[in-house]
Protein backbone atom coordinates (compact mmCIF):
# COMPACT_ATOMS: atom_id res chain seq x y z
CA UNK A 1 0.00 0.00 0.00
CA UNK A 2 2.58 2.51 -1.18
CA UNK A 3 1.83 5.42 -3.52
CA UNK A 4 2.75 5.36 -7.18
CA UNK A 5 5.69 7.66 -7.89
CA UNK A 6 5.13 11.39 -8.29
CA UNK A 7 7.21 14.53 -8.33
CA UNK A 8 6.97 16.91 -5.44
CA UNK A 9 6.97 20.67 -5.38
CA UNK A 10 6.76 22.99 -2.43
CA UNK A 11 6.04 26.46 -3.77
CA UNK A 12 6.83 29.36 -1.48
CA UNK A 13 4.13 31.62 -2.81
CA UNK A 14 0.69 31.49 -4.36
CA UNK A 15 1.93 32.68 -7.78
CA UNK A 16 4.48 29.85 -7.76
CA UNK A 17 1.75 27.38 -6.82
CA UNK A 18 -0.50 28.63 -9.61
CA UNK A 19 2.31 28.35 -12.13
CA UNK A 20 2.91 24.75 -11.09
CA UNK A 21 -0.79 23.97 -11.28
CA UNK A 22 -0.85 25.32 -14.78
CA UNK A 23 2.27 23.42 -15.71
CA UNK A 24 0.96 20.06 -14.57
CA UNK A 25 -2.70 20.53 -15.45
CA UNK A 26 -4.73 17.44 -14.65
CA UNK A 27 -1.58 15.62 -13.50
CA UNK A 28 -1.04 18.04 -10.61
CA UNK A 29 -2.74 17.83 -7.24
CA UNK A 30 -2.65 20.36 -4.44
CA UNK A 31 -1.46 18.89 -1.16
CA UNK A 32 -2.78 20.68 1.91
CA UNK A 33 -3.36 18.69 5.12
CA UNK A 34 -3.22 15.46 3.15
CA UNK A 35 -5.59 13.63 5.47
CA UNK A 36 -7.83 12.56 2.60
CA UNK A 37 -5.35 12.75 -0.27
CA UNK A 38 -2.56 10.69 1.27
CA UNK A 39 -4.79 7.68 2.03
CA UNK A 40 -5.93 7.85 -1.59
CA UNK A 41 -2.29 7.98 -2.69
CA UNK A 42 -1.35 5.06 -0.44
CA UNK A 43 -4.16 2.97 -1.89
CA UNK A 44 -3.22 4.13 -5.41
CA UNK A 45 -6.76 5.38 -5.85
CA UNK A 46 -5.13 8.70 -6.74
CA UNK A 47 -2.03 8.60 -8.94
CA UNK A 48 -1.13 12.21 -9.73
CA UNK A 49 2.08 12.95 -11.59
CA UNK A 50 2.90 15.83 -9.30
CA UNK A 51 2.01 17.03 -5.83
CA UNK A 52 2.05 20.74 -5.20
CA UNK A 53 2.45 21.13 -1.47
CA UNK A 54 1.04 24.50 -0.41
CA UNK A 55 1.76 24.01 3.28
CA UNK A 56 4.70 26.39 3.36
CA UNK A 57 2.95 29.31 1.63
CA UNK A 58 2.84 32.02 4.28
CA UNK A 59 -0.37 33.70 5.34
CA UNK A 60 -2.80 31.00 4.33
CA UNK A 61 -3.47 29.75 7.85
CA UNK A 62 -5.22 32.84 9.18
CA UNK A 63 -8.27 32.77 11.40
CA UNK A 64 -9.46 36.36 11.39
CA UNK A 65 -12.58 38.42 11.86
CA UNK A 66 -12.86 40.91 9.02
CA UNK A 67 -15.47 43.25 7.72
CA UNK A 68 -16.76 40.48 5.45
CA UNK A 69 -17.04 38.03 8.33
CA UNK A 70 -14.94 35.27 9.76
CA UNK A 71 -12.10 34.40 7.41
CA UNK A 72 -10.63 30.93 7.66
CA UNK A 73 -7.51 30.53 5.57
CA UNK A 74 -7.10 27.45 3.42
CA UNK A 75 -4.30 26.19 5.65
CA UNK A 76 -6.03 26.85 8.97
CA UNK A 77 -5.80 23.47 10.72
CA UNK A 78 -9.05 22.07 12.03
CA UNK A 79 -7.52 21.70 15.47
CA UNK A 80 -6.72 25.42 15.54
CA UNK A 81 -10.17 26.31 14.23
CA UNK A 82 -11.81 24.11 16.83
CA UNK A 83 -9.90 25.85 19.60
CA UNK A 84 -10.30 29.40 18.26
CA UNK A 85 -12.34 31.75 20.46
CA UNK A 86 -13.21 33.71 17.32
CA UNK A 87 -14.79 30.65 15.78
CA UNK A 88 -16.62 29.78 18.98
CA UNK A 89 -18.05 33.30 19.12
CA UNK A 90 -18.81 33.91 15.46
CA UNK A 91 -19.33 30.46 13.94
CA UNK A 92 -20.53 28.26 16.79
CA UNK A 93 -21.90 25.78 14.25
CA UNK A 94 -18.37 25.06 13.07
CA UNK A 95 -17.08 24.88 16.63
CA UNK A 96 -19.77 22.31 17.42
CA UNK A 97 -19.06 20.29 14.29
CA UNK A 98 -15.29 19.97 14.47
CA UNK A 99 -15.04 17.58 17.44
CA UNK A 100 -16.92 15.12 15.25
CA UNK A 101 -14.28 15.27 12.51
CA UNK A 102 -12.04 12.20 12.74
CA UNK A 103 -9.56 12.36 15.60
CA UNK A 104 -7.09 14.77 17.14
CA UNK A 105 -4.01 13.56 15.25
CA UNK A 106 -5.93 14.06 12.00
CA UNK A 107 -7.33 17.48 12.92
CA UNK A 108 -3.84 18.80 13.69
CA UNK A 109 -3.02 18.38 9.98
CA UNK A 110 -6.40 18.57 8.30
CA UNK A 111 -7.11 22.00 6.84
CA UNK A 112 -10.19 24.07 6.19
CA UNK A 113 -9.27 24.38 2.53
CA UNK A 114 -8.66 20.67 2.13
CA UNK A 115 -11.88 19.76 3.90
CA UNK A 116 -13.89 22.06 1.66
CA UNK A 117 -12.09 21.37 -1.61
CA UNK A 118 -12.17 17.60 -1.08
CA UNK A 119 -15.98 17.96 -0.92
CA UNK A 120 -16.76 14.63 0.68
CA UNK A 121 -20.55 14.56 0.84
CA UNK A 122 -20.50 13.00 4.30
CA UNK A 123 -18.10 15.57 5.74
CA UNK A 124 -19.14 18.04 8.38
CA UNK A 125 -17.44 21.25 7.28
CA UNK A 126 -19.04 21.59 3.82
CA UNK A 127 -22.51 21.22 5.37
CA UNK A 128 -21.68 23.90 7.93
CA UNK A 129 -20.42 26.29 5.28
CA UNK A 130 -23.58 25.91 3.24
CA UNK A 131 -25.79 26.30 6.31
CA UNK A 132 -23.97 29.48 7.27
CA UNK A 133 -24.21 30.91 3.75
CA UNK A 134 -20.46 31.13 3.51
CA UNK A 135 -18.33 31.74 0.47
CA UNK A 136 -15.21 30.18 -0.96
CA UNK A 137 -12.32 32.32 -2.17
CA UNK A 138 -10.49 30.90 -5.13
CA UNK A 139 -7.44 32.15 -6.96
CA UNK A 140 -6.10 31.34 -10.36
CA UNK A 141 -3.81 33.01 -12.88
CA UNK A 142 -6.98 34.64 -14.20
CA UNK A 143 -7.56 36.32 -10.84
CA UNK A 144 -9.56 35.68 -7.71
CA UNK A 145 -13.23 35.05 -7.28
CA UNK A 146 -15.72 34.27 -4.55
CA UNK A 147 -18.05 31.33 -4.92
CA UNK A 148 -21.14 30.88 -2.76
CA UNK A 149 -20.96 27.67 -0.75
CA UNK A 150 -24.24 26.43 -2.19
CA UNK A 151 -22.81 26.71 -5.70
CA UNK A 152 -19.39 25.42 -4.77
CA UNK A 153 -20.26 21.77 -4.16
CA UNK A 154 -21.15 20.11 -7.44
CA UNK A 155 -21.03 16.38 -6.78
CA UNK A 156 -19.20 13.64 -4.91
CA UNK A 157 -15.73 15.12 -4.36
CA UNK A 158 -16.44 17.59 -7.17
CA UNK A 159 -16.44 21.37 -6.80
CA UNK A 160 -16.72 24.55 -8.79
CA UNK A 161 -12.93 25.00 -8.67
CA UNK A 162 -11.64 25.13 -12.20
CA UNK A 163 -8.34 23.91 -13.61
CA UNK A 164 -5.46 25.91 -12.26
CA UNK A 165 -7.57 27.28 -9.45
CA UNK A 166 -6.74 26.99 -5.78
CA UNK A 167 -8.90 27.60 -2.73
CA UNK A 168 -7.36 30.27 -0.53
CA UNK A 169 -9.94 30.87 2.18
CA UNK A 170 -13.53 30.49 3.21
CA UNK A 171 -15.57 33.33 4.60
CA UNK A 172 -18.41 32.92 7.03
CA UNK A 173 -20.73 35.91 7.43
CA UNK A 174 -20.84 37.51 10.85
CA UNK A 175 -23.38 35.93 13.16
CA UNK A 176 -26.57 38.00 12.95
CA UNK A 177 -28.61 38.70 16.07
CA UNK A 178 -31.14 36.05 16.98
CA UNK A 179 -29.45 33.27 15.00
CA UNK A 180 -28.62 30.03 16.73
CA UNK A 181 -26.73 26.99 15.57
CA UNK A 182 -26.95 23.34 16.29
CA UNK A 183 -24.80 20.63 14.79
CA UNK A 184 -25.58 17.00 15.37
CA UNK A 185 -24.68 13.81 13.65
CA UNK A 186 -25.16 10.06 13.89
CA UNK A 187 -22.02 8.07 13.30
CA UNK A 188 -21.51 4.43 14.24
CA UNK A 189 -18.42 5.35 16.21
CA UNK A 190 -17.05 8.64 17.45
CA UNK A 191 -14.97 10.21 14.69
CA UNK A 192 -16.40 8.19 11.82
CA UNK A 193 -17.99 9.81 8.83
CA UNK A 194 -21.60 10.48 9.75
CA UNK A 195 -24.39 8.26 8.46
CA UNK A 196 -26.29 11.52 8.55
CA UNK A 197 -25.28 14.92 9.90
CA UNK A 198 -27.41 17.99 10.25
CA UNK A 199 -26.04 21.50 10.36
CA UNK A 200 -28.89 23.69 11.50
CA UNK A 201 -28.74 27.46 11.63
CA UNK A 202 -31.86 29.38 12.50
CA UNK A 203 -33.25 32.67 13.68
CA UNK A 204 -35.30 32.13 16.77
CA UNK A 205 -38.06 34.59 17.50
CA UNK A 206 -41.12 34.30 19.71
CA UNK A 207 -40.45 30.65 20.42
CA UNK A 208 -40.44 29.76 16.74
CA UNK A 209 -37.83 29.26 14.09
CA UNK A 210 -38.52 32.39 12.10
CA UNK A 211 -35.98 31.37 9.47
CA UNK A 212 -34.08 28.11 9.30
CA UNK A 213 -31.22 26.86 7.18
CA UNK A 214 -30.93 23.08 7.39
CA UNK A 215 -28.10 21.36 5.61
CA UNK A 216 -27.50 17.63 5.74
CA UNK A 217 -24.37 15.64 5.10
CA UNK A 218 -24.32 11.99 4.09
CA UNK A 219 -27.62 12.08 2.23
CA UNK A 220 -26.58 13.06 -1.28
CA UNK A 221 -23.74 13.84 -3.62
CA UNK A 222 -23.21 17.23 -1.97
CA UNK A 223 -24.32 18.88 1.24
CA UNK A 224 -28.09 18.91 0.87
CA UNK A 225 -30.16 21.92 1.83
CA UNK A 226 -33.58 20.81 3.09
CA UNK A 227 -35.66 23.61 1.60
CA UNK A 228 -39.04 21.99 2.11
CA UNK A 229 -38.35 21.13 5.71
CA UNK A 230 -37.11 24.67 6.25
CA UNK A 231 -40.35 26.01 4.79
CA UNK A 232 -42.39 23.67 6.95
CA UNK A 233 -40.65 25.00 10.04
CA UNK A 234 -40.53 28.69 9.29
CA UNK A 235 -42.54 30.70 11.73
CA UNK A 236 -44.59 27.73 12.96
CA UNK A 237 -45.35 26.97 16.56
CA UNK A 238 -43.53 23.65 17.05
CA UNK A 239 -46.16 21.27 18.35
CA UNK A 240 -46.10 17.58 17.54
CA UNK A 241 -48.10 18.01 14.36
CA UNK A 242 -45.81 20.71 13.02
CA UNK A 243 -42.75 18.63 13.79
CA UNK A 244 -44.29 15.64 12.06
CA UNK A 245 -45.09 17.77 9.04
CA UNK A 246 -41.52 19.08 8.86
CA UNK A 247 -40.11 15.56 9.23
CA UNK A 248 -42.43 14.35 6.47
CA UNK A 249 -41.36 17.18 4.21
CA UNK A 250 -37.74 16.27 4.86
CA UNK A 251 -38.31 12.58 4.15
CA UNK A 252 -39.98 13.48 0.87
CA UNK A 253 -37.29 15.82 -0.35
CA UNK A 254 -34.30 13.59 0.50
CA UNK A 255 -32.99 10.97 -1.87
CA UNK A 256 -30.09 9.54 0.10
CA UNK A 257 -27.69 6.88 -1.16
CA UNK A 258 -27.49 3.29 0.05
CA UNK A 259 -24.09 1.90 0.91
CA UNK A 260 -22.42 -0.56 3.20
CA UNK A 261 -22.92 1.72 6.19
CA UNK A 262 -26.61 2.51 5.81
CA UNK A 263 -29.52 2.03 3.47
CA UNK A 264 -31.30 4.98 1.95
CA UNK A 265 -34.28 4.23 4.17
CA UNK A 266 -32.14 4.33 7.30
CA UNK A 267 -30.55 7.62 6.27
CA UNK A 268 -33.95 9.14 5.56
CA UNK A 269 -35.24 7.96 8.92
CA UNK A 270 -32.22 9.23 10.83
CA UNK A 271 -32.42 12.59 9.10
CA UNK A 272 -35.91 12.94 10.52
CA UNK A 273 -34.68 12.10 14.00
CA UNK A 274 -31.91 14.67 13.72
CA UNK A 275 -34.39 17.26 12.47
CA UNK A 276 -36.66 16.78 15.49
CA UNK A 277 -33.72 16.93 17.85
CA UNK A 278 -32.33 20.04 16.16
CA UNK A 279 -35.62 21.87 16.36
CA UNK A 280 -36.01 21.04 20.03
CA UNK A 281 -32.40 21.99 20.67
CA UNK A 282 -32.60 25.29 18.83
CA UNK A 283 -35.75 26.32 20.62
CA UNK A 284 -34.50 25.28 24.04
CA UNK A 285 -31.04 26.78 23.70
Amino acid sequence: MKPAPFVYHRPASLPDALALLERYGAEGRVLAGGQSLVPALNMRLATPGALIDINRIPGLDEIRLGAEGLVLGALARLDAVERSPLVAAHAPLIAQALPHVAHLAVRTRSTVGGGIAHADPAAELPACLVALGGTVRALSRRGSREIGAAEFFRGVCTTALGPGEVLTAVVVPRLAPGWRSRFDELARRHGDYALVALAAHARVADGTLAEARLVLAGVGATPVRAARAEAALAGRRMDAAALDAAARALAEELDPPSDVHASAALRRHLAGVLLRRAVRGLLEA
Binding site: Y8, R10, Q35
Partner: peptide
Amino acid sequence: GALVRACLMLAVQ
Protein backbone atom coordinates in the same frame (compact mmCIF):
# COMPACT_ATOMS: atom_id res chain seq x y z
CA GLY B 1 4.92 19.64 18.69
CA ALA B 2 1.68 18.55 17.01
CA LEU B 3 0.36 15.03 17.14
CA VAL B 4 0.18 13.59 13.61
CA ARG B 5 -0.37 10.35 11.75
CA ALA B 6 3.01 9.53 10.27
CA CYS B 7 1.36 7.41 7.56
CA LEU B 8 -0.51 10.47 6.27
CA MET B 9 2.46 12.78 6.04
CA LEU B 10 5.20 12.51 3.48
CA ALA B 11 8.78 12.49 4.65
CA VAL B 12 9.50 15.43 2.36
CA GLN B 13 6.89 17.42 4.25
